[in-house]
Simulated assay, not measured.
Amino acid sequence: MYSDYSTYDSCRVEVCLCNMATAVTYEFQCKHFGFTDVTPKHFYESQWTERKEYFVVYRAIMFLYCLIWAIYDTNFCVSSYSGYYITHLSSWGEWTLVVHFGLALAVSMFGLIQDSDFCFKNNLERTICCGNGNTCQINDIKWFHNLCWVVMTAASGVSYIVTISYWCFSDNRMYSIAVNTHQHIMNSVLMTMDHLLSRVPTRYLHFVYVSLYGAVYTLFTVILHLIGIRPMKYSGTLDWTKSPEISIVVSLGLVTVGACVIHFITFTIFKLRDLTHYRLRTSQTKSALFSDTSSHSNKDINANERSRILQ
């Protein structure tokens, strides 16, 4: 097909660059600030299996794990750092995880129950799901799907911010190794695992929801300052009394540049997941085609052999 390998390689490079340009153009469409190009199935199934009951079990385990640890951590931190637990971003992140997995569990259970109650197959063997009043809603995205998507994005962002900022910039270490590990390591591990297992896509322009989360927390620290409460952990960075200039720079940096950089981690994990799934699916398809071709070839050989014997 090609006169030499250099021509072939140059064509491959051109195709790759074209695909990259198309992907970038797609991601930066204004519609992706919102919630488009998804179906409810993205919230009901794993990327790796269509068995929704397995996904519900996974969501339930994650929710119970995070809830139990959040209650334990809250009890420990309140007793050890009286009056300051609610001021820490790590505490916000921990309960955001609980909200995320609880909401994700409820949505996945809704998908499972909806299928069992309102789904049927038409004459073309296509599964149709209908709600009350016989109004089919197989591809309709509801408000709770959007809410689940936003909370998942915010939970990822705050988890990575907490982990990176704690281990890179904080000198204060908790007395409990278990609490410290769960609040500042397992939070990112759990969200990374969730992005790898779920089917919910990540839109890069959704970094605005990470920024919004950071803006809300920044406003909260300003309110704390106005009522006379200073978070001990952030006395050198978010101290509106002693160093308001530094606090402004840190807050603006996290809400703008920091949110974009942190969300890029989530976006990269999503792309790696999709690429891996695509490669595996392509490999399985090629294997199936090869097996089918081999089977037909063997049948032709056997038919030719029988003809030769009969002759």
Rank of each mutant, 00 (worst) to 15 (best):
R279E: 11
Y160V: 06
M152R: 12
T241W: 13
V210Q: 05
L226Y: 13
R279M: 07
V222H: 03
T202M: 08
D274G: 06
Q284R: 11
T276N: 07
Y213V: 12
Y204Q: 14
Y160H: 08
V222A: 04
L196Q: 03
F267P: 02
S170G: 05
V261A: 10
L190V: 07
G236N: 15
T256A: 03
S159W: 08
N180F: 03
K233D: 06
S156N: 14
L212M: 14
T282M: 01
S198C: 14
T218Y: 03
I248K: 13
S156I: 03
Y209Q: 11
L219H: 00
T276C: 15
V179R: 12
R173L: 14
T153L: 03
G228M: 04
R230M: 07
C260L: 14
M186F: 08
L272F: 10
T285C: 08
V200D: 10
A178H: 09
Y278I: 01
Y209T: 13
L196T: 01
H182N: 14
G214S: 11
V250D: 02
W167V: 08
R199P: 00
I246H: 04
S283E: 09
F169N: 07
H263N: 04
M193T: 11
Q183M: 13
T256Q: 01
L219G: 13
S176D: 11
Y204A: 06
F270I: 00
R279A: 11
H206P: 01
V158Q: 05
T163G: 02
G253D: 05
L196K: 01
I185F: 11
L212Q: 10
L254Q: 05
H206F: 04
Y278N: 06
I164D: 04
S176A: 13
R281Y: 06
G253M: 02
V208P: 10
L238A: 06
T237P: 02
T192V: 02
E245P: 15
W240M: 08
S235D: 15
I161Y: 08
I161S: 11
T192W: 07
N180S: 14
H277W: 07
W167A: 10
D274Y: 05
R199N: 15
L272Y: 08
I161K: 01
M186P: 00
G236W: 10
K286G: 00
M193G: 10
Y204W: 12
F169K: 09
T285D: 09
Y234G: 03
H277G: 09
D239R: 14
H225K: 04
Y278D: 09
S211N: 12
N187V: 15
M174A: 12
I269H: 04
F267E: 06
R279N: 11
G157P: 04
A288K: 12
T163M: 13
L238P: 02
D194L: 09
T202Y: 03
G258T: 08
V261E: 01
T285F: 06
I248Y: 15
V257C: 11
S243Q: 12
C260V: 15
